[in-house]
Write a protein that binds this DNA or RNA. Sequence first.
DNA 1: AATATTTATTGTAATATTGCAATATAGAAT
DNA 2: ATTCTATATTGCAATATTACAATAAATATT
Lengths: 110, 110
Amino acid sequence: MGATKTEHFTIKQNSIATIAKALGHPARVAILEYLIKVDSCICGDIVNELPLAQPTISQHLKELKNAGLIKGNIEGNAICYCVDEKTTVRMQQYFEAINQKIEMKKLKCC
Amino acid sequence: MGATKTEHFTIKQNSIATIAKALGHPARVAILEYLIKVDSCICGDIVNELPLAQPTISQHLKELKNAGLIKGNIEGNAICYCVDEKTTVRMQQYFEAINQKIEMKKLKCC
DNA sequence: AATATTTATTGTAATATTGCAATATAGAAT
DNA sequence: ATTCTATATTGCAATATTACAATAAATATT
């Protein structure tokens, strides 16, 4: 016991949960917002920007990457991280669909 | 060490992270979707619908409620849970804003 | 009042996450 | 080749999450 029972849910549900989970930490929200704010996107900047040690940020970047929220290209001895639009668009669409359904039903109770 | 350093991030970032974290588990995504799918929204239904024990679901409902994603009204000896549109709309708007910024910048690298 | 029904709480075991120091890796600059 | 710079990995301690059996609480039904 203690481990998430992913196998009981649909691929879509697991996929949304994975992306949401990656954004379920303020440091990772901050990283995403920072990558959007600046034009360039070298990881070194992030270490200077956030009040976390380099290994911690490296770990957060890895999680954002695994969730598909960012992508990283090697550029010399630095790594160029930036947002992966596909995933943020997908999340937008997910919430759009949800809100549309809610609007259509105009739920009886509450 | 091991606890999230929430104090270093903005209220907005923490707030988005809290909502995202609540959706960072497939069971909670499934619960949200189920509450939207059905017209009524009694918790008992959810226990029958999902392959999780009643205390587990009760706990997940609590987390969704704390994050503001659902609200619950007492109705006899049952509790009527349903989606809180305000929060799902807020998430939609958050991703809309993010995607708009990405579109505007058309990031140089990657 | 006694029983059934519905949901919440408590306690606990298993597992996952967070954060960082120390170290490793790999390309760049000298 | 050595040193510098940027990032990743490892190992570990602290904390949080997940899941559920057992139990509690509160209203409904008989």
